[in-house]
Amino acid sequence: MRLALDRRRFLSLMAAGAALPTMGRFASAASPFAFQASWINDAEFTGYFVAMDKGYYAEEGLDLSYASGGPDVIPESTIIAGKADLTLTTPDTTIKAIAEQGAPFKIIGTQYQKNPIGIVSLASNPIKSPEDLIGKTLAVPPVNVISVEAMLKISGVDRSKINIVPYAYDPTPLIKGEIDASLDFTTNVPFTIKQAGADATSFLLYDFGFTIFNDTVVVTEETLKSKRKELVSFLRASRKGWEENLKDTTVYPPKFADSWFKGTGRSIENELFFNEAQKSLIEAEGGIFSMSEEAIEANIKALAEVGIAAKREYFDTSLLEEI
């Protein structure tokens, strides 16, 4: 027994010894890089999970640490506080903070070319356009009220004619008909509604004039100066991860069932639906994360409608060019 133990310890020591030089080399080469996601682990972040598992970040010399988000996590806070180097945000929130509070943020790319947020309703009580909302009850997460107000204003619908109530992340009231519609990721909730035996109708805020990105890649101006090389590396590796994931949207979610998606409370079928549904919203002519001049212009115009004075200089496309 004692001998066996000793031998085992000896072997593990040998193994550790053998690994030491390589580890040392990696440690000196890889720069630590902290990434704060905007929500709990779901298909929204599959591209990054692929890039981590396939070692794309390590190849780029990044030692990436990944933090999941949640309802009280304000992604922008984490980069101001220096807890993360880079984060994903809702652009209306970020831009409002730059314009009105002088927050030191720069948008260096975007995961979604088209914001996946939309109005979801039951096919039996369909809401197909902003006008249909008049006289109805719409559940909106308090953080997103700003987006809905923008869409309504752009569509010329009087906000006071719609009963907006908080959306507490649970679609049960919608399925049971207590509310007529809810604001959520259209890549997500229609699946849940189908599971509950009903059919969903949805439209994107994007398609009704609120032409903004979502999950914009945001850093502080200071990080942009001091870690430019790492940021380009991050974008390159992440783009590779997303390309790999979107090649066939059915491949990766099941592979993460026991790692990234383990015990999230969601189902792999749900992630598969999500992954497929987000494909067309992510892919871009200029490559994933790219921000074309027209798209930036569309963002600025949409935000101007609700009195948020976005400027071209809030967006920095130069890192994307270096990929």
Binding site: I40, N41, D42, A67, S68, G69, G70, P71, D72, V73, A168, Y169, D170, P171, T172, I175, N188, V189, T192, I193, Q195, A196, G263, T264, G265, R266, S267, N270
Partner: peptide, 20 residues
Amino acid sequence: FGGGGRFGLGVYLIGSLGRG
């Protein structure tokens, strides 16, 4: 429930809420 992170009954709850 609010603070992010990977595990905890509160995290499980927030993930499960969306399932209806």
